Simulated scan of single mutants.
Amino acid sequence: MKRLPIIPTMIATGFGAGFWPWGPGTAGAVLATSIWLVLSQFLMPTTTMLTTGVLIVVFTWLGTWATAKLTPHWGDDPSRVVIDEMIGVWVPLLLAYNWWTALTALFLFRFFDIVKPLGIRSLDRRKGAFWVMADDLLAGIYSAIVLAVIIYISSTWAR
C-alpha cells in the first residue's frame, strides 16, 4: 500500500482530530469551535467574523483538495475526514458572539449533520471530494438560520 500523503492527511483529519475513535466528526466540530472560541478572545467581533469567513473559504478549498488526494487510500467519505465538519460548524459560528451562542451553534450543527434533513442527505450521497464538504456546508447554513432565530427571539425577550 502506498504511503499516505502527510499534508492532505493533516488537513483532512483536522490535524488528527479525525483519528479520535469515539465520534471523529464531533471531535472535528469541537476542535473548530475551540479554535473559534480562542480567536474570539483575541479579536474584535467583526474581525472574528471575517476571520471565520476566511477559514470557511480557505479550508473548503484545502479540504476538497486533501479529500481528493486521500480518496484512493480511504474511499469516498471516510469518517477520518473531519475538515468538512470543521467548515460546517464555522458557518453558524459566523453569527456567534459569546460562548453560549458558540455552543448552541455546535449543537445545532451536529444535529443537522447527524440527522441530515432537508436535502443534506442527498448531498451526502453524492460522490466526489467537493460533495464531502457540501453536505456539511448545508448543515451549517441550516444551523445558522436556526441560530439567527434563537438570537432574535432571545434579544426580544431581553427587552
Rank of each mutant, 00 (worst) to 15 (best):
G25D: 12
V132W: 04
V91W: 02
L31A: 05
A17P: 00
T26F: 14
M86C: 11
M10V: 15
P117H: 12
A66E: 11
G25V: 13
I83V: 14
V82C: 03
I120N: 01
I114S: 10
G14R: 07
F112W: 07
V89A: 09
W99K: 05
G63I: 11
I150V: 08
I120F: 08
W61G: 09
W90M: 00
V149K: 04
L106N: 05
Y152R: 03
F59Y: 15
D136T: 10
I11P: 04
T33I: 07
L106D: 08
G128P: 00
W157R: 05
I141L: 14
A17I: 02
A29P: 01
A139W: 11
L94H: 04
L147D: 07
W20V: 10
I87S: 04
R3D: 09
A139N: 08
T48M: 12
G18P: 01
L108R: 12
I6T: 15
V54Q: 11
F111W: 14
A105K: 10
W36S: 05
V38K: 02
R3N: 12
D136L: 06
L138N: 10
T104G: 07
W20M: 03
V81E: 04
T48E: 12
G16R: 07
G28A: 12
L70K: 05
M1D: 10
A105L: 06
L138G: 07
G128Y: 05
M86R: 07
T46F: 15
L4Y: 14
I145K: 10
V149Q: 04
I141M: 12
R3K: 15
N98P: 00
F19T: 02
V81T: 07
I7E: 09
R159M: 06
P72S: 03
L39H: 13
L37K: 03
G28Y: 11
W61N: 05
F59V: 05
F111R: 04
L31H: 02
F111Q: 04
S154F: 08
P8I: 15
L93Y: 14
I141P: 00
M1R: 13
L55Q: 06
S40K: 13
I56Q: 04
D136Y: 12
A139F: 13
P78A: 09
V81F: 09
D77V: 06
G23V: 13
Q41H: 13
V38G: 03
P45F: 13
S122R: 13
A32N: 04
T51I: 14
W65V: 09
F109D: 00
T156M: 08
